[in-house]
Write a protein that binds this DNA or RNA. Structure first.
Length: 161
DNA sequence: GCCAACGTTGGC
DNA sequence: GCCAACGTTGGC
């Protein structure tokens, strides 16, 4: 089982939006490294830190679960979508994503600054300057530590699955 | 709104 | 295959 961090701008799609719909294709990602993680390494049941970017403060706001294997991202075929990719085709899709489902929302955001200040989070990709990747692997110990910083018991996560 | 960091594109 | 130009991300 792997752990991940998924960035989303809350104005576009927030943890509350995920809570409302319960499950959502993680579409619109147009970066090859992020795609490769989603297509090749994510497995159903993996857990992800849900991260709000481009907001004050940026940080981890909850937990999501990888709900399906990766499948073609439908927005790439839709000329009306801002994620339309004319170079992709249904026979040979370029962009893949799983569906993710809501697990829980933290009582309070664990801010990027908190992660940077916490020795237990040292080395997390998201704390690195200039790190823009929107789908990142997370070490198990970092995942546990972020739960701890959020005041969430791992048993609460298991119970929410 | 600024801008540093980074990824992608395309001419050559 | 290099690399300059350009576009995007995302913290601040």
């Amino acid at each position: 089982m792997n752990y991940w961090l998924l960035k989303s701008e809350p104005d576009v799609f927030s943890i509350d939006d995920l809570a409302d719909v319960e499950r959502e294709p993680w579409d619109g990602v147009r970066n090859y490294q992020a795609r490769n993680f989603m297509r090749d390494q994510m497995q159903v049941g993996d857990l992800a830190l849900f991260y709000h970017s481009n907001t004050r403060p940026p940080g981890v706001v909850g937990v999501a679960r990888i709900a399906t294997p990766a499948h073609p991202d439908e927005t790439q075929f839709d000329p009306q979508s801002r994620y339309y990719d004319p170079k992709s085709s249904p026979d040979n899709p370029r962009w893949w994503c799983p569906d993710v489902s809501f697990v829980l929302k933290f009582p309070d955001v664990v801010s990027l600054q908190t992660l940077r200040d916490d020795p237990g989070c040292a080395g997390m990709l998201v704390t690195r300057k200039g790190q823009r990747l929107s789908v990142q692997p997370v070490e198990p110990e970092h995942f546990r530590r972020v739960l701890e910083l959020a005041g969430v018991d791992p048993a609460d996560v298991s119970a929410a699955l």
